[in-house]
Design a protein around this nucleic acid. Structure first.
Lengths: 110, 110
DNA sequence: AGTTATTATCGTAACTTTACGATGATAAAC
DNA sequence: GTTTATCATCGTAAAGTTACGATAATAACT
């Protein structure tokens, strides 16, 4: 046990859950905010903005990369991070569709 | 270890991460879709729509409740579930603000 | 070649999540 | 009051997450 029954769900729900999971830790939200803050890519020094160790930040970056939300290209000694435009827009759209699907319930049971 | 350093992050990022975490499992996305599908509250029988055991579904419902996204009021023998309008709209807005903060990077490094 | 700087990965401890069966709790139905 | 239906909770096994120090990998600099 301890494993999600992936075969039981739709591809859409799996993908949406994957994107949501990437956002499901405050450190990763903070990292994304740092990347959003700049217009350009940011080369390293994300570690200095967060009160976490270098290895922990690297691990969070890896998860964001695996979810597809960010890219990291090698640029000499440093690595250049930025938001992946396509995945970002897809996640945005999927979330927007889900959330805007809400209409307040007519019954007064809750 | 194994615990998030909550004190290190802003209240906004913690809340956003909490909402995202609620969406970070396909079963919970599926449950929310079921609740969204109806205009009214849904009394029980969510279990029958998912290929998971009753206890597992109940656990997912609990997590959605703890994140604040849904409410569950007792209605005799059954329990009446529905989306919590306020939290839903807050989550929607916070996500929308985060995602719309993106502008493609000018540099061509990635 | 040796040093320095930067990032990734490994190893590991502690905690959390996912899933299920079994058991409880509560209220309607008989 | 006993049964039935519905949902929550407990207990537990397996897997995943979070965090950090230590170590490895890579490339620039001397």
């Amino acid at each position: 046990m301890g494993t999600t029954k992936t075969e039981a769900f739709t591809a859409t729900d799996l993908l949406l859950a994957k994107y949501a999971k990437a956002l499901a830790h405050p450190a990763r939200v903070a990292i994304l905010r740092i990347l959003l803050e700049r217009q350009s890519c940011i080369c390293g020094d994300i570690v200095e903005e967060l009160p976490l160790s270098q290895s922990t930040v690297s691990q969070h970056l890896k998860e964001l990369k695996e979810a597809g939300l960010i890219k990291g290209d090698i640029d000499g000694k440093k690595v250049c991070y930025c938001i992946d435009e396509q995945a970002w827009k897809q996640a945005q759209q999927m979330l927007q569709v889900l959330f805007s699907n809400y209409t307040p319930c007519g019954t007064n049971c809750c």
